[in-house]
Design a protein around this nucleic acid. Sequence first.
DNA 1: TATTGTTATACTCTATAACTATA
DNA 2: TATAGTTATAGAGTATAACAATA
Lengths: 184, 184
Amino acid sequence: MCPEPAPPTGAEPAWGVQADFGWALGVVFRSYLKAANAAVAELPGGPRGYQVLAAAARDQPRSQLALAQQLGVDRTVMTYLLDDLEKAGLVERRPDPADRRARRLTATESGEELLCTLDRRLRLAEEHVLGALDESDRETLRGLLQRVATQVDALDPVASACDVVNDIADESAMPAGRRPRTGD
Amino acid sequence: MCPEPAPPTGAEPAWGVQADFGWALGVVFRSYLKAANAAVAELPGGPRGYQVLAAAARDQPRSQLALAQQLGVDRTVMTYLLDDLEKAGLVERRPDPADRRARRLTATESGEELLCTLDRRLRLAEEHVLGALDESDRETLRGLLQRVATQVDALDPVASACDVVNDIADESAMPAGRRPRTGD
DNA sequence: TATTGTTATACTCTATAACTATA
DNA sequence: TATAGTTATAGAGTATAACAATA
């Protein structure tokens, strides 16, 4: 009395959770995160630090806040991240001549060098995670993820996907008597 | 002097991070996580609670520990999760007749009902996240993720991907003078 | 008055260690 | 002695709120 996510073959034992999108996405993400973590372990801030460093080197963000929003982190976290990266001599905070409240971000030479190395390692980590696929399928997966991510990011760089579910929650009938704090 | 991830077209401003696999994967994952969070917000333990409930209903795990390992969570976390789910009357811990240390897990009727509803909502959340793709591309993406996840999960249900990077770290030349605590 | 960035504080999540009851 | 489960404690990561400087 519930269509169950329909296991691919139906013969294997212990399917259940394993058959769904969320599970697969989570496994792949955590696996990549683990590899990426190891790849950039020496960098203050880990993978997040990498994104900040990469943005500083290539996007030359106009302010800490702008970068924080672009990466979907709190602006206070950005402060800590930059403190550590600057202490390590990888990025610099420079005053914005146009707005003395804001700070421009740039990568030092040392930062750019390190970024090169990290890029190479991350590429290897990525290929390790995608080990199950041949090059053609990897390209396809990368492309599809890119399309989804781009749209999601365009719709709402950080939040999104959340309001929708409020509608979903209203639409779908609850098992009666169980409908706790919605504003939680 | 560094091959840079090669922006797709090369004309757009502010590419950088946006062009890489890790970024796309992270955006998609967080977006789905947010939607899933909202979809199962009323369930103790959120998405993790859902996975436990689903496993209890469909896999009938032989022990808490077995399920914890299958889901990649600490066994202490499993205790908290089950405490809350049991308190809500959704799952039951029953003594394993074969091993009086272990507990069998089953979903209550109330739990199965709720699971139905949540499955439906998660399906909607998933489709919302994949809004950029037509049905055919969604199938492709699901299939590819499934293949990658299955292999990753088979190689190492929890860890994996980590040792590899130790090799990577050795292989790749560091910018000299910068090679902090490896055992961190 | 609103905004950028910083600091201090509190909260959540997760992991660690110690304990029990079984095997 | 080793294992399943629980509990208590500590740590990392994150968010909240208050503040200073500037717009």
